[in-house]
Design a protein around this nucleic acid. Structure first.
Length: 639
RNA sequence: GGGGGUGUAGCUCAGUCCGGUUAGAGCGCUGGCCUGUCACGCCAGAGGUCGCGGGUUCGAGUCCCGUCACUCCCGCCA
């Protein structure tokens, strides 16, 4: 007989009755009846009930074994009597009547319990992650992650992509996030950087003649964490295609994402192919940001003109000063009590906005008074507006607001498959007014809030969209300088001609993001593979040719000896798993995540190192004064 | 770097607003009882620097100041 097991803890069934079996696992739970002891034995696969009675020689030691001790038990599989069958457990029709028990590894008293579904603080969970990961939900998440990655890998290979590995110790990249740096022993004063993404390597592979690259790529960025952003490191499904247009890239990855989300989505809806595409500018107009959650059906519109010169001075002055008034529809909200509007107003002020103006369209009462979408029909009345702002707006202005919202709703319905809607009687409209960028940012948040207040968010669905036509450049508000808005490696639309003839701020790039449920899964681009266009593109952002050669020498050089037009994308693996696992926090789907302060509480990273090691690296510390540097322990050091 | 929340038994939390006798509960732990449970049950017990430091007060878990830690958000994340 195998020294540890003949079966797993999820294997024994009624058909095994009478068989002699050996199981190994953790003591999940014990039920001690004095002269009869039940042990739920758990392994990766499941749980099997084992039973011992007082007549056995090892009964006492079994009684004393703590939960989470690892044991090996041997005995006979017996069918349970009908009244003792447990239908909640896969092995619930049988139990193992054990006649031998070997303690493989006793457990001390636990800092967190594995059985049951108690909540524990994250600090405890991460410090004892090996215990936390034994728990059902955590165990399931990590297993799901593995299955998703295996499925992605299989689908990528089937689609003709070739998997590569690229360096982890590489050079710092001048754009983007902060790098993690690694001092070089052999070259004092010089540093490696961990890659923020294998961006340049995958482009070099294109220049190397490989046609379709992919990698489940580790990426390292020294930026602060969020619930959906793991500190330090994360994984991307990084891929790149030679001789590919933007449409080719979309056509290659859409079915893979779609099928993976269907495979692991547990019946949740997935956007059909092809995924909708929203130009960046339209996304800002309709949703206030470039990562719209299309489960939210609300479409916004700029209605500044309706307020220009109106009696509502606050908004009229804002418009005259070049600001925006953004309207957010609130379908069927006219029936809501005053407290609904007051509550949203209070929320707006908590968010730091001046407030949230609104108009309620409930003037005429009764049904059937909705205006036709295009207006102009005889006998159609504009519903009368109510609310603090409405009295300052005449019918023509109210009409203009409804027309703008209906126009936006109709166009979004056609392009995105959002439910069509004609606003009018019975609806309400909220207004956000500020300088344009600020107004959009706040309106985006208000749109989400209003959607949830009204219970309009589509449940159990993954709604994908591409955001396309990103601007190539933007003006840095602080410095006034023209900068790359997204990715310096993207091909500007219009190529060299556009760079030479157009206002840089109006040039678009073949740059795109894929967004799912309001979460940016990835950005990608058709790359700039032409050295002459690169020089010009960087010149506009203030980099001389020498600087481009110095900073991107490898890539720049590669493009001088024949490089294929190419492009790609890099969806975030962790966020995909997070959504499919339906977890609100990215750390729930990473086996050993760091905490929000980028510390690994289990391994004790980051840690101090010996002076000798620093000397070897020609590194001397210059620590900030005030702060204790102990890292762990949590106790402040006396000063 | 900034803002919010939290910090009380091994763990999860109540008590803090409105200061007052010996700081409680559940789970876990220890001991005892229990032969059909499956969140087993019953009895008893141990376990506390109320994050840390300072202040106010006759008296501080509770009020004030500072500080540390964790967490959520903003900045940041080509």
């Amino acid at each position: 007989m195998h020294p540890f097991r003949t079966h797993t803890c999820n294997e024994l069934r009624l058909s095994h009755a009478g068989v002699r079996a050996r199981l190994s696992g953790w003591i999940h739970r014990k039920r001690d009846h004095g002269n009869l002891l039940f042990i739920d034995l758990r392994d990766h696969y499941g749980v099997t009930q084992c039973v011992i009675d007082a007549s056995s020689g090892f009964f006492l030691s079994a009684t004393e074994a703590r939960p989470e001790s690892v044991i090996t038990v041997t005995g006979r599989v017996v069918a349970r009597s009908p009244e003792t069958v447990n239908p909640a457990v896969a092995t619930g029709e049988v139990e193992l009547a054990i006649d031998d028990l070997k303690m493989e590894s006793p457990a001390e008293i636990l800092p967190l319990q594995v059985s049951g579904d108690a909540d524990y603080g994250e600090e405890t969970r991460l410090r004892y992650r090996f215990l936390d990961l034994r728990r059902e939900r955590q165990h399931r998440n990590i297993t799901l992650r593995s299955a998703i990655i295996a499925s992605i890998r299989r689908r990528m290979v089937e689609a003709g992509f070739v998997e590569f590995q690229t360096p982890i110790l590489t050079a710092s990249s001048p754009e983007g996030a902060r790098d993690y740096l690694v001092p070089s022993r052999q070259h004092p004063g010089k540093f490696y950087a961990l890659p923020q993404a294998p961006q340049q390597f995958k482009q070099l592979l294109m220049a190397s003649g490989f046609d379709r690259y992919f990698q489940i790529a580790p990426c390292f960025r020294d930026e602060d964490a969020r619930a959906d952003r793991s500190p330090g490191e994360f994984y991307q499904l990084d891929f790149e295609m030679a001789f590919a247009t933007q449409d080719d890239v979309f056509a290659a990855i859409e079915p893979i994402l779609h099928d993976v989300f269907v495979e692991f989505g547990d019946g949740r809806g997935v956007t059909g192919l092809p995924f909708p595409r929203i130009p960046y500018d339209a996304s800002l107009d309709w949703f206030g940001n470039d990562k719209p959650d299309l489960r939210n059906p609300l479409v916004m519109a700029d209605v500044g003109e309706a307020f220009r010169g109106s009696g509502f001075g606050l908004f009229a002055r804002a418009v005259d000063a070049g600001g925006s008034v953004i309207a957010i529809p609130a379908p069927a909200a006219a029936a809501r009590p005053r407290s609904f509007f007051d509550g949203l107003n209070a929320w707006a002020r908590d968010e730091g906005a001046g407030g949230l103006g609104y108009v309620v369209f409930a003037g005429h009462g009764g049904a059937g008074t909705e205006p036709a979408a295009d207006g102009g029909e005889a006998g159609v009345r504009t519903p009368a507006g109510k609310g603090p702002i409405a009295k300052h707006l005449d019918d023509a202005r109210l009409e203009a607001i409804l027309t703008a919202l209906n126009d936006a709703a109709r166009r979004a319905a056609e392009g995105l498959g959002l439910p069509p809607r004609i606003y009018g009687e019975g609806d309400a409209v909220f207004f956000v007014s500020a300088e344009k960028v600020k107004a959009q940012r706040f309106a985006a948040a208000a749109r989400e809030r209003i959607c949830d207040e009204l219970g309009l968010r589509e449940a159990r669905a993954f709604r994908f969209t591409w955001i396309v036509d990103y601007p190539a450049y933007e003006r840095n508000e602080e410095t006034g300088q023209i900068e790359f808005s997204h990715n310096p490696f993207s091909m500007p639309q219009g190529g060299l001609d556009a760079l030479e003839s157009m206002d840089p701020l109006s040039i678009k790039a073949y740059q795109y993001d894929i967004v799912c449920n309001g979460i940016e899964l990835s950005s990608g681009a058709i790359r700039n593979h032409r050295p002459d266009i690169m020089i010009k593109a960087f010149a506009i952002a203030g980099y001389g040719e020498d600087e481009v050669r110095r900073r991107f020498g490898g890539l720049f050089n590669a493009f001088r000896y024949g490089a294929p037009p190419h492009g790609g994308c890099a969806p975030g693996i962790d966020r995909i798993v997070m959504m499919l696992a339906d977890e609100p926090n990215i750390r729930e789907i990473i086996a050993f995540p760091m905490n929000q302060q980028a510390q690994d509480l289990l391994m004790g990273a980051p840690a101090e190192v010996d002076a000798a090691r620093l000397k070897e690296l020609s590194v001397r510390l210059d620590l900030p004064k005030a702060k204790a540097t102990s890292g762990g322990g949590g106790k402040p050091e006396p000063r």
